[in-house]
Write a protein that binds this DNA or RNA. Structure first.
Lengths: 117, 117
DNA sequence: CTATAATATCACCGTCGAATGATATGAGTA
DNA sequence: TACTCATATCATTCGACGGTGATATTATAG
């Protein structure tokens, strides 16, 4: 019983962690996050910077917003998006550092269909 | 032209980052990573700890190995798996910290079908 | 009040990839 | 050598999810 509680607590944590990483793991969402990593941007600015379609960006932004990775502030008819927390930036930093070491391995892993370059 | 180079370099980085996060974003793979976060484990030990099927674990392990997130050392007929780099642990730490703040948001985001708890 | 720009929403479709089951490999043991 | 345990491989299936196109909403401008 105590074990059960511990277990489901572990599963809850895992579920949240997995969801968090999902936010970063999609190429489009990652582009968006990187795009507003240093400065807030309008949806249109994000669309232009990432070269994704507007509905696509909007969809992903709403997802990222719900997940708490980004926040939006309305300014007239514009919506300015930025990273919600320095923790998000922190994860991006850690990931880049790790990629610096394991980059080649990642390229060689053929399990995902990500359009390479 | 210079811009082109910069662009494709950016895309390469994004591609690698996305792949890296993919490693963490699947529930099964994340379970495996967390499972060997503190100490190396045998495949069977991982299977028992995560309650995943053996082929499933093996498939994910090979993926994680190719991506450079874990390393395996053969010991007799056993294969011992552990995290490849402290950077992997670092990312898990950062993520947990962030989840501590945005946890509730993540639960509410209905975009993924991850079996909640 | 109409027009237009900025963004959001939503249903649909195609595809990727996770899980499974069967089987192969390989190492130790009797 | 035969047998068993530990792990890997692989083809297949099926569901989730990312992209798109059409449309709705909201806000400013004229």
């Amino acid at each position: 019983m105590a074990k059960q509680i511990i277990t489901s607590k572990r599963l809850l944590t895992e579920s949240r962690l997995a969801k968090l990483f999902r936010g970063f793991s999609d190429r489009s969402r990652l582009s968006i996050l990187l795009c507003i990593e240093t400065e807030p941007k309008t949806v249109n600015e994000i669309v232009e910077a990432t070269e994704l379609s507007q509905p696509n960006v909007s969809n992903h932004l709403s997802c990222l917003r719900e997940c708490g990775l980004v926040v939006a502030t309305a300014q007239g008819k514009y919506n300015i998006y930025q990273l919600s927390d320095t923790g998000v930036r922190q994860i991006l930093l850690c990931a880049r550092e790790l990629v610096g070491k394991t980059g080649a391995d990642l390229d060689n892993c053929g399990n995902y269909q990500l359009p390479n370059i």
